[in-house]
Design a protein around this nucleic acid. Structure first.
Lengths: 187, 187
DNA sequence: TATATATCTAAGCAACTGCTTAGTTTTAGA
DNA sequence: TCTAAAACTAAGCAGTTGCTTAGATATATA
């Protein structure tokens, strides 16, 4: 047969992910990627088709990385308190120390908010809807809330979570804590 | 003497502003600007120095445009209720109908959050600090709040306002209303 | 050992970026 | 009416973008 790959696919995807995470999609060039990943452009295109293909793999990789946090959130039995804990978990630099600020997925959601990229938009919408659904389920465990209230609060929390991810890139730990605490004051 | 300008400077700045507002700084090229403004690149560079110079003029122009909203906010006498009204005012498409989503300044703040562009960063920080200071003053009118509480709530509101501007680009009017209402339940 | 084939390197493509330059046109004041 | 200077047009600069191609290199199987 033929020559085998000189690189570990999972390893190079992680390197790509960290670069996309730090810079966003548009501000990461294929030249930067080949340096960070340590492989030639040809190999990138052979393995992932194009820049967007590599980006989608990076998103998948990130989802796998934060999966444990999501599982913890899903499996919690403390209702609304689980949501609050989820907020706190999500602003802690999840994987390693560095310039990785905010949630990679939410950053991406922001970057593509007005873009017309269908494939990535679908990914993002699904992700946000998934979180919202979890919020709704957690909120429903509080029997005193009517369905109307649950939906309003889920919307509120989703926007708050969204803003939080943006804030975590620029604001101090104290400011972020204040924000989370006040956000949950009346939920 | 010499030839006079064939274009109205204020008019072309407004056109530039609308383009920057819709697309952000990086996603607006000088070629796009010369088409929108209806003048040649040479004239742009002669009048504004460079792309950043034109962008700063666009920011100034926007500030002038929304100044009446700010004046109303400053001069209000209803304390915290003024802040809430300011939130509502700021999500209404301020100047004309179109693709102008969110607050141009906050969009810019988000775009340059991690950038190293000093001049624009200073502009943005001053703007955000100005809003925060106004929040603080309004909150202080409620005598029952301690200074600690005022500062925490000002931080909270600033992040909420910030998130709101992002949300106004993608979320429905209803979702945004729910968000504002619940935000102020916590104050 | 020979060979088919996947993977590698490195150069190159056209289209785009912000910005400049050479040269023409216009016009206010002497 | 002449002329200096600002404003104009349009071509062009070097650098970057995502992506491709030509050709050398390595290797699992026959």
């Amino acid at each position: 047969m033929a020559r085998s790959k000189q690189y570990n696919e999972q390893e190079v995807i992680e390197k790509a992910m960290s670069l996309f995470w730090r810079n966003g999609y548009e501000n990461t060039s294929v030249r930067m990627l080949e340096k960070e990943m340590g492989i030639n452009q040809f190999s990138i295109y052979a393995a992932f088709g194009n820049k967007q293909g590599l980006f989608l793999e990076s998103l998948k990789c990130y989802k796998r990385k934060v999966n444990s946090m999501f599982e913890k959130f899903k499996n919690g039995t403390n209702g609304i308190n689980d949501i609050k804990e989820f907020f706190y978990d999500s602003v802690q630099t999840p994987i390693e120390v560095g310039n990785y600020k905010g949630c990679f997925l939410t950053n991406t959601y922001n970057e593509f908010a007005e873009a017309e990229d269908q494939i990535i938009n679908v990914q993002m919408t699904e992700f946000m809807e998934g979180i919202k659904q979890l919020f709704i389920e957690k909120l429903r465990t509080d029997q005193s809330k009517g369905e109307q209230t649950v939906l309003k609060q889920a919307n509120y929390l989703l926007l708050a979570k969204h803003g939080l991810a943006a804030a975590s890139r620029v604001n101090s730990k104290q400011e972020i804590e204040d924000y989370i605490e006040l956000t949950f004051k009346n939920i």
